[in-house]
Simulated scan of single mutants.
Amino acid sequence: MPTILYLVHGMGCGSADGSPAPAGQRWSDSVVDAVNWITDTYRLPRATVLDPVPSTPPAGSDNANAIWVVPVSYHATFDDFRRGATDRKAKVNALGIASLVDAYVTELTDTDFAWVNCMDVLLWWADTVQARTMATASILATITRADDLARQMPGANIRRLLVSHSLGNAATTYSLRHLGTNAVWAQTGGFEFWATLANVAPFLMPTADVYSPPLLPGQTGTLVRQMCNVYHEADPIPWLMPWRPWRAENAGASWKDAWKLQSVIGNLRTFQTLGVAAPPGRTPDIMNVHGFANYLMSAEVSQALAGALRGASFDTQELAQLNVPAAWQQLPQLTCTKTQTALADLKRAKDVYVQNCPTPPGDPVLATAGWLERLLRAVGLLLEAKGKCS
């Protein structure tokens, strides 16, 4: 009975020139390290990484406690766009996006960081014919390939868990809605657990696509049984539009009460994390306030995910014996040598960033304009913090 943990990356997992990442520097490397830390810390079996998904189940998969980790990549379509772009501005202008003023184009193309990170978001949002379609196909292909592999095992009772990060939340939400139209998937029970980390889906998609079935947790025939939404106290990315962050109250008149009920029942939880650490053997960066691995290893997310992996929550006595806070403190911790208050300064800057964005008139649930400008400003805050820290 394999438990499959799907990990879907966010923005910035490709490269400025579109070339593949060298060994040891792929987006999934640090995230898998974080998962290994979780399984070790919570005394769970070590996971088997399926990247790529093989043609036959790996050895030991028939064990009732077997865990498969499946990194889900979709950044190749964005890398294709950047590959061979000798004139970045011309390449962006050729997209023909009416709202993309010259100032935005300059910010998107002047630094490799914005060119890799912000362009991913823009392409997924704007190029619905090619980039979004290819990303969706890539995500669904990996998920179904691993699922089909598990079905090769006689009597397999598959458990599925899902963790998506940043832009990956929008890409995953879009993909799950496609799965929801498949009657076979609706009958499988879908995903027992879905963690959305630094969720930007509400800024890039209509409200109905973000909150309506088949994504509503705890319902018969939907694809998600339990869900948690997580943001870091110093991460500005989940607050591109402070009037419509991901939360049950923003689900719209049709679905708001149903989402709020799942929150009361306990099938929907919201966490705020803090602190910056890196998996063992790696070095933390202040920009990891938005990092996938840092989110995963936080006390709140690691406990929820570990409980989902073993199929039962940890009680108070078990948590006391595990002493996860002490284990987290043993991880490589962020140290800012230039300005020791850099993380606290980033937290304050993020709070100002949120407060200085007034709610638009009319129905704020429907207002989505301005996310790109806010994204560029948020990335600027992270880069400024990096300059102050190291």
Rank of each mutant, 00 (worst) to 15 (best):
N169Y: 08
L261N: 10
F203G: 05
M227H: 08
A277H: 05
I265G: 03
G266S: 10
C389M: 10
N267R: 10
D40F: 08
G362Q: 07
R46G: 09
V121P: 00
D285W: 09
A21R: 14
A85L: 07
T136R: 15
W68T: 02
F203V: 07
A208D: 14
L197C: 06
K91L: 11
P360N: 06
V70E: 00
P364Q: 09
R177D: 05
G10V: 03
S263M: 13
K350Y: 07
P57S: 10
M153F: 10
Q152E: 13
Y174T: 12
W27E: 08
T128S: 14
D80I: 00
P202S: 04
V301P: 01
E384K: 15
N65L: 07
P245I: 07
S19F: 10
A306M: 05
G266H: 05
H178V: 13
T172Y: 04
W239L: 09
L240R: 08
N63A: 15
E233G: 09
A16P: 02
L216N: 05
N267D: 13
L268G: 00
L268K: 02
A47H: 01
G380K: 02
R83C: 05
P206F: 12
D33W: 07
W68F: 04
Q262R: 15
T341S: 15
A85W: 06
N157I: 11
A156D: 12
N294V: 02
L167N: 01
G291W: 08
F78M: 07
A186Y: 00
K386R: 15
P52T: 03
G84K: 05
S73D: 13
G60R: 04
T172I: 03
F292S: 02
S212D: 15
L44W: 04
N199C: 12
A277M: 06
N267T: 09
L381A: 09
P58V: 12
T196W: 06
L376F: 02
Q303S: 14
L179A: 07
D51M: 02
R374P: 01
V210Q: 01
L305P: 02
G218L: 00
G291Q: 06
